[in-house]
Amino acid sequence: MKKTAKNIIEISGLTKDYPLGNTTVNALRGIDLNVQEGAFTSIIGPSGSGKTTLLNIIGCIDTATRGSVKVAGHEITGLNDKQITDLRLHTIGFIFQTFNLIPVLDVLENIEFPLLLMKKHSGAEIRQRAEKLADLVGLGEHVKHRPAELSGGQRQRVAIARALVTSPSLVLADEPTANLDSVTGGQILEVMRQMNRLEKTTFIFSTHDANVLKYAIGVTKLKDGVITAN
């Protein structure tokens, strides 16, 4: 997967328009952005500045209106749904603000889930890898719990483990700490930073919380759909 290119993300001239009634909302208006492999970078900006929109497009779950987006060497605008889904599965991990775990699966099964979708590994391999990640995020004791039985911080740890289990080159986290208190949020960012070091995974996370910024290594500032500082 990992190409020799140093940039895992290369964005140029990206715009995103949303039709809203008779008008259009220009959520992104000409973004040029490169992110290097192994980065642990943050996108910061006020509410409505376009952070989620940008992350969604990088994460290949939304499409650009104009411009070019290259993720791990793939120009994503030309791909069909099946290819894009495969790209997401193999290359990208997601961490959501609202955790988004699958309620009917327990902790271990949630972590295993993306590996099962890959249909590449044996049951034993999957189990082993999932258990290792559960340990790494500090949930070794809770593998048999269902999401409903976990605290918010614990849930987000599960989400981190799930995002990392496939060894993606890129993990996207849209406001991963917004639903957590600041202590727990800090711990979550510590875990993410640790994973970034251990697995050499690129992390991009968004936040509007200046406190969170101290964890970031690079910062991209967004305002009204344009980058104001990098």
């Binding site: 994460g59 779950i61 749904d81 099946k82 889904t85 495969d86 997401r88 599965l89 193999h90 997601f94 959501f96 988004n100 699958i102 889930f113 993306p114 979708l117 890959m118 799930r162």
Partner: peptide, 9 residues
């Protein structure tokens, strides 16, 4: 969520 994670249609 499952679509984002990479489950096919």
């Amino acid at each position: 969520t499952i679509r984002a994670i990479g489950m096919q249609q």
